[in-house]
Simulated assay, not measured.
Amino acid sequence: MDGLEEEVEGEVSDPRRRFAEECRDRRELYPDRRLNQGQLARMLRTSRATVSRLETCRGSIPPDLPPLLDQVFSTDGLFKRLYEEIVAQSFPAQYRRGVALEREAIVVRQWSPTVVPGLLQTADYARTLLRGGAPRASEEEIKANVSARLARQDILRREAPPDVRVVLCESVIRRQIGSRDIMRGQLAALLTHGAKAAVRIQVLPLDAEAHLFIAGGARFLTGPNHMTVVCVEAYRTVAIIEDPEHVREALRAYDGLTGEALPTRESARLIRGQMEALT
């Protein structure tokens, strides 16, 4: 799901319809006076056409609008919650549970041997990956897929974000995805993310020993109940491992990766050096 596999489904989901209906109803029943689309657009600092698309389920929802709608209509997070449901359902069915678990996680651990994980991708980097995975997709489809992927990053902007622990194979930062400018921007974003208190990024050197996950990536999602599941993804498939013994084995392997990986400061220096080499 972090590389080439994402694909937004064409069918409008129920949360999307409810989002549209709530927006229209609350606009028309606004206290004191009924708002038209233009008036609401001015309150949201957007265009009337955007409000029209929101209310007719056309196109993707700009991620900055749900909290503004909650503010304008005093809806205590209703539009934000609906938006999160829409994002989760915009992924193919096999990925939805993983997205939902990620949204609720208090700890996200990830090992990535090939690309920067979706939680840390820039729009340009994500667009390049998605375009490579779907060369026949329209620009509108690619735009929607990019928006869905970037919306996953909303969890990092919460007042209490999850702890995020990422180990990247050194090849991830050395493999140029897209132009030099795109890759340089992605490496700069990694440094910005890595400077946050809740995020730790480590790089596993190319000469590291073989390990359990050498053939593919894995995400470890720990929920509010402190139970952890492991998501292992391949081409258009995802397996969610919940068996406690297998989860413990996977976590031990991940702990081994963090021990073999460069410390965070050395990892940041390596990332910065690769970024500067692209100037």
Rank of each mutant, 00 (worst) to 15 (best):
G217I: 01
V238Q: 14
Q274N: 02
A123W: 00
E266H: 11
T75D: 13
L130K: 01
R26V: 07
F73E: 11
E11I: 06
R18C: 02
L191A: 05
H246G: 04
S60T: 13
E249Y: 12
A100Q: 15
A93C: 07
I271A: 03
D207L: 12
R158P: 01
E102A: 06
N225T: 14
A188L: 11
A215E: 09
E260K: 11
A188K: 12
D25E: 11
A210L: 09
P66Q: 04
P205H: 06
G223E: 01
Q176D: 02
V199G: 07
R174T: 09
P205L: 05
A234P: 00
P92A: 10
M1Y: 00
L29F: 03
A93N: 09
D255N: 11
R96P: 08
H226N: 12
R18K: 13
D124L: 12
I177W: 09
E21A: 13
D181N: 12
L29H: 11
V87A: 02
C169N: 14
L78T: 11
E55T: 09
V12D: 03
L119T: 00
A100V: 11
C23Q: 10
A208F: 12
V107L: 06
M227S: 10
R96E: 04
D163K: 07
I214E: 03
A189T: 04
A195T: 01
L191I: 09
G194C: 02
V232A: 15
R184W: 01
R42G: 03
P67N: 14
V87R: 04
I214N: 02
R200A: 10
E159S: 08
T222D: 00
L40R: 03
P162F: 00
